[in-house]
Simulated assay, not measured.
Amino acid sequence: MSYTRAVRTGGGIDGSEILTYEGIPTICIGIPVRYEHTNYGMVAYQDFAYTVKLVEEIITGLSSEKIAAF
Rank of each mutant, 00 (worst) to 15 (best):
M1V: 04
M1L: 07
M1K: 09
M1N: 10
S2H: 12
Y3E: 01
T4W: 01
T4H: 09
T4G: 04
R5Y: 05
R5M: 05
R5N: 08
R5H: 05
A6Q: 09
A6R: 10
V7T: 12
V7P: 01
R8S: 14
R8A: 13
R8E: 13
T9I: 11
T9V: 12
T9R: 15
T9L: 13
G10L: 01
G10N: 01
G10Y: 00
G10E: 01
G12C: 04
G12L: 07
I13F: 15
I13T: 15
I13P: 04
I13Y: 13
G15H: 08
G15V: 03
G15N: 10
I18G: 07
L19E: 00
T20L: 09
T20M: 09
Y21C: 00
E22K: 10
E22H: 11
E22A: 15
G23W: 07
G23T: 11
I24P: 04
P25M: 02
P25K: 04
P25F: 00
T26V: 15
T26Y: 05
T26I: 13
I27N: 05
I27D: 06
I27A: 14
I27L: 15
C28N: 11
C28T: 10
G30Y: 03
I31D: 00
I31E: 01
P32S: 11
P32L: 07
P32Y: 03
V33C: 12
V33L: 14
R34C: 11
R34P: 01
R34T: 15
Y35W: 06
Y35T: 05
E36K: 06
E36H: 07
E36R: 06
H37G: 05
H37L: 12
H37I: 09
T38H: 02
T38V: 08
T38E: 06
T38K: 02
T38R: 03
N39W: 03
N39F: 09
N39A: 11
N39R: 02
G41F: 05
M42P: 03
A44I: 14
A44C: 13
A44V: 15
D47S: 07
F48M: 13
F48S: 08
A49D: 13
A49T: 07
A49C: 12
A49Q: 14
A49G: 08
A49H: 12
Y50R: 08
Y50I: 00
Y50M: 03
T51Q: 00
T51E: 00
V52P: 00
K53W: 05
K53A: 14
L54Q: 04
V55T: 11
V55Q: 04
E56D: 14
E57G: 08
E57Q: 08
I58L: 11
I58T: 01
I58R: 04
T60P: 00
T60Q: 15
T60V: 08
G61P: 01
G61T: 02
G61Q: 06
L62C: 10
L62G: 07
L62I: 10
S64N: 09
S64A: 12
E65S: 15
E65W: 09
K66C: 01
A69K: 15
